[in-house]
């Protein structure tokens, strides 16, 4: 089995009496896309927020390799190698593509908060930003102000920003939401390349994409994982079919894809 990069054990998040997430243990391996699926309200986004540190767990533990990251704030987790995208595109809309990505690279450079000299002076940061822009397929848009791009390109930009932070694990919260077919195909191809040398955990409703991308699949229902394993294995489990009652077509469609 490949190296385990991120490992979460028995995560639980309670909001008052409501258990948004309970008893969730997931891990993300190197060179792997781990997809988390489940009906709305299953706790998938909460899981991502727990892993990224945006939400503090009620109990449970998270490890990056040998390092306990359970109590690290989001910015320290980012420095520890956890990068994420948001369900709602979260970019600096008034800045250019390059400035967005440069900022991300700056956060992980040698002197992220230097107070003298212009920000553009740091050649190392610029180079890493340019590499991330290229990897996300946005080189031709480098000088474009983010808000003037299409939704799909903005999501690509978000991926470029995550890449510039040089993450070992990438968390993607519904990266295909709101995309047209052509845009989605481009994004699927991009995500497929992201796992090279890294680990990817993706939450996604588009079953075609999930079955095209996932090396491993975890199914969540009502805040709990009910199944985990290879896509072929999970797809045929009766419990999963029951949970997806009414969504059977989606799984079949995904299987056929």
């Amino acid at each position: 089995m490949s190296e385990i990069l991120l490992k979460a054990t028995a995560l639980e998040k309670r909001y008052g009496g409501l258990k948004a997430v309970s008893g969730v243990s997931v891990d993300v391996h190197r060179d792997e896309v781990h997809a988390v699926i489940g009906p709305n309200g299953a706790g998938k986004s909460t899981l991502i927020n727990l892993l990224s540190g945006d939400v503090a767990p009620t109990s449970g533990a998270m490890m990056m390799g040998e390092r306990d990251i359970t109590h690290l704030s989001p910015n320290l987790r980012a420095l520890a190698g956890v990068g994420r995208s948001y369900q709602k595109t979260t970019i600096f809309r008034d800045s250019t593509v390059f400035e967005n990505v440069r900022l991300a690279a700056q956060a992980h450079g040698g002197s992220p908060l230097r107070m003298v000299g212009t920000a553009e002076r740091d050649g190392n940061v610029n180079a890493r930003a340019a590499a991330a822009v290229e990897e996300a397929g946005l080189s031709h848009r480098s000088g474009t102000v983010a808000k003037f791009m299409s939704h799909g390109e903005q999501r690509q930009l978000e991926i470029a920003m995550v890449l510039a932070t040089e993450p070992r694990v990438i968390l993607l919260d519904e990266p295909l939401a709101g995309m047209g077919h052509a845009e989605a195909q481009r994004m699927i191809a991009l995500i497929g390349r992201l796992k090279d040398g890294r680990g990817v955990l993706i939450v996604e409703h588009d079953m075609d994409a999930v079955f095209a991308l996932a090396d491993r699949l975890t199914v969540m229902v009502d805040g709990r994982p009910i199944a985990s394993g290879s896509p072929e294995h999970v797809r045929n489990l009766p419990a999963v079919r029951a949970a997806y009652l009414g969504h059977d077509d989606e799984i079949e469609a995904g299987a056929a894809a």
């Binding site: 990224s52 945006d54 704030s73 989001p74 910015n75 320290l76 980012a78 420095l79 990068g83 994420r84 948001y86 979260t90 970019i91 600096f92 900022l103 991300a104 956060a107 992980h108 992220p112 908060l113 920003m161 932070t165």
Partner: peptide, 10 residues
Amino acid sequence: NERRALSLGF
């Protein structure tokens, strides 16, 4: 965007 700034590591 405070959330994004944090998740970038600032």
